[in-house]
Design a protein around this nucleic acid. Structure first.
Lengths: 117, 117
DNA sequence: GACAGTGTGTACTAAGTAGTACATACTACA
DNA sequence: TGTAGTATGTACTACTTAGTACACACTGTC
């Protein structure tokens, strides 16, 4: 699987093609870290940064925060909070769903969204 | 809300009524920590222990591991892994469900379990 | 009154987390 | 060719995590 750093670098470099403000320096500044640190993150020299920085990076690079967090080995804190509020319920639901194919889960998401519950 | 330490202490003390092997010392030994550490955990003097120890504690006290982990501010690593595997899907599902009443979520769990998916 | 068992206080620590600060090296272009 | 901007390397640090080690004081009991 593609590493977090590789993914970030590719995404940033792609944006840089058409917008030079997507340099390591400037992106680092916008998300609030030192350029050297972002550089190390992109070269996988250090572990992915904190949730806050990952989310800021997602916003900056127009990526899905949940996907980026997943790549960073984390789960968004609002999801964790939801699970922790009703642990038995969500634990059993997720365990039921974890081996089902995508389409089944997707169908479920849609049905819930359509207010059938 | 009841703190993790209070809950553990109450649960352990209850068991100790009918089985003297549920002392701080002996339970600590069985879950693999120092007695002073378990004592501190029960008195909320330190943060809840690692996932491994919490799960061991749940087993020892016949409590639901997911509930205990939630009280400890954690989510079981197998659930995290499931979410991280398909982050968009699970993120949207959990966000849809998080404000629905228990009975709705419960009904969903049952339908999935009954293989309607 | 010795002693086994119990809970707690104090002091310490190894490893990891999430970075900062600064110096150096490379690259394009005016 | 100098210099502005960019990327990278090295060194350091404050904070947190997840505990251990050990001494101490209390209680019941034989």
């Amino acid at each position: 699987m593609r590493s977090f750093g590789d993914y970030i670098r590719a995404s940033r470099e792609a944006l840089k093609q058409s917008d030079t403000t997507f340099s390591v320096r400037q992106v680092a500044m916008r998300i609030g870290v030192e350029p050297s640190f972002l550089s190390k993150v992109e070269r996988n020299e250090v572990a992915p940064p904190s949730e806050e920085k990952v989310v800021a990076l997602a916003r900056e690079l127009s990526e899905d925060p949940d996907v980026l967090l997943a790549m960073a080995g984390k789960v968004s804190s609002d999801l964790r909070a939801a699970i922790m509020k009703r642990p038995e319920l969500f634990a059993s639901l997720i365990r039921e769903l974890k081996d089902l194919p995508d389409r089944a889960v997707l169908r479920l998401v849609r049905e819930v969204r359509d207010g059938k519950w």
